[in-house]
Design a protein around this nucleic acid. Sequence first.
DNA 1: TTGTAGGCGTTATCAT
DNA 2: ATGATAACGCCTACAA
Lengths: 355, 355
Amino acid sequence: MQPRKTTIHDIAIRLSLSASTVSRALNNSPRISLKTREKVRNAAAELNYKPNHLAMNLRKGKGTTIGVIVPRLNRHFFSHAISGIESVINPTNYNLMICQTNEDYETEVKGLQSFVNHRLDGIIMSIATGTKKTGHIEYVVKEGIPLVLFDRMMGKISVDQVFNDNFAGSYDMTKHLIEQGYRKIIYFSGPLHLELYTDRYNGYRKALADSSIGFENEWLFTDVLTQSRGEEVAKILIKSDNIPDAIFAASDFSALGALLVFKNAGYAIPGQIGIAGFANEPFTGLISPAMTTLEQYSEELGRSAARMLIERMEFTTGLGAPNFVVVKPKLIVRGSTLRVPAGKERNEELISETV
Amino acid sequence: MQPRKTTIHDIAIRLSLSASTVSRALNNSPRISLKTREKVRNAAAELNYKPNHLAMNLRKGKGTTIGVIVPRLNRHFFSHAISGIESVINPTNYNLMICQTNEDYETEVKGLQSFVNHRLDGIIMSIATGTKKTGHIEYVVKEGIPLVLFDRMMGKISVDQVFNDNFAGSYDMTKHLIEQGYRKIIYFSGPLHLELYTDRYNGYRKALADSSIGFENEWLFTDVLTQSRGEEVAKILIKSDNIPDAIFAASDFSALGALLVFKNAGYAIPGQIGIAGFANEPFTGLISPAMTTLEQYSEELGRSAARMLIERMEFTTGLGAPNFVVVKPKLIVRGSTLRVPAGKERNEELISETV
DNA sequence: TTGTAGGCGTTATCAT
DNA sequence: ATGATAACGCCTACAA
């Protein structure tokens, strides 16, 4: 614990200069002679000077920190999205402040508030499943803080957004299942108050309708996103002797739960039952049978979000019309749903590499 | 974009009070009458006042942000450690600023420097594998900023540390392999300039020695931590016909790479070759055969680190003697190494649940 | 119980 | 090319 940190004043005194000169020299202002700049730099190094960003930001009315809010850090999807964000942010001189909500609304509000109080310059966020109200987000927008929503879209809010074409992904997957001969396709959904999940659900429904396959209300299970929920529902299905041809889950994790339960119960996958997920989490390529799923290009999503945010921050054109970036997920077909003999009605284009 | 944000002065003017009164009222100072406090609170809400943390921190010379530096966010180990940290930090009014180094030294230095400049109040960090010098860390310590090192220990630096007993974990694993009848046990290590990895390596060597099993220099492969490196080395082993009895990898990921290569090449696991990893990443329980590995209790590690940091920050007793927390990893025995018939020399205590 | 004044470290404006 | 001064928004002696 040293008494006090070196400031530009200390440097100024040491060199018999004024603080403003030192400040300018440190900022490489052309108004200061090269010789002086050199002297100042040396003295700064000698005195171990470290700029105080708090003071800088206070004075300038803006800082260099971007806040990121995600539901969970330990999802491949989000950690890779963050990697994408970082790859764009790192070369700039912005810093990342990350906060995870654990899908909880209160935590989300608190985190966002803290970002506002800290006068962060921009925010990238993905809404928690627990979030049903959007006042806190609209507030940030009204406050004039650049904000980009990502993955969990929110049609009502007029703000930049980056997300997957969930409808299309879901549609493609369902079509694939139908092509493989599955007819009774049960759907594991997330909470339907999130557009993300209604879109996925609608894509599934549309594909069924387009193939003239009837839909039964009991085919839909909501809030089945985790492995344990997937296991629960799978056990219920087995116990009630309500065995589906296939399960399409809006989450790889619940798909995994179902796959394990059915496999343990002795069902042949993909023979008796097909199972597909959503997100292409790394484990989907490692289990057996490997799981059919949808690649969401999370890293690219993150990069896009970061780029959009920086755009907003630099060209602070007030509240222009919001921009949207939509990324179409890619169908990754693997063993858990592939049962049509090769060369028959199998669509070669659908077959992707398995990691 | 509104013209300017509300400050305590605005509230003061509105209520014909002084700014200091408002400040005190907002901070619930008993020196201000309850009635005034109430009035101030209302006015603040009405004017949509948000405290400026930059100014607060500048004035107080300290803030409420804790920095976390990890090599990779997308490792189960680190994302769970962060969850642990958060579970301790969230109830306080500190915030987390997270930075990932991608195992790169330069990024680590830059991140740490940025933390110092932002006057963060405390730092929890795990050193990048690319880091060989420690000056930047010692600097932070000398600067008087509370710092806790975690997972990647650094014996030379006098600072609080939380880490696994890597020697013991590695020793246990090697013993287990020997008990299973494996003799030629090849070792995939991380870079040996990190104590973490020398400790693991030494545990392995000690177990071999204690069982009077000779060690050959070609059994050691360094810098084999990723899946792709694991695959590379496995292919080299097969090509050179240098087939081991078992592989013990200091990383689940390189173990995975080897497992896949040997499995694809038609080797029976655990029959012809046993494979074990380190970290208990979720996929280890999902692949087949499921992988034997070591649980590191990352969440607990994170919690301990956060607790130690807060301790240091609150009771800022200068530079007291550093504290250490050591957590012993737990052996998780699964199919990839288990081949001794039950009831023979198999040690029941070693058999743990498979998640 | 409240007000006044000064300063945290920096930078922008205006002068010299 | 450099200096003096004020201000960013808040807090805290000290004074009243």
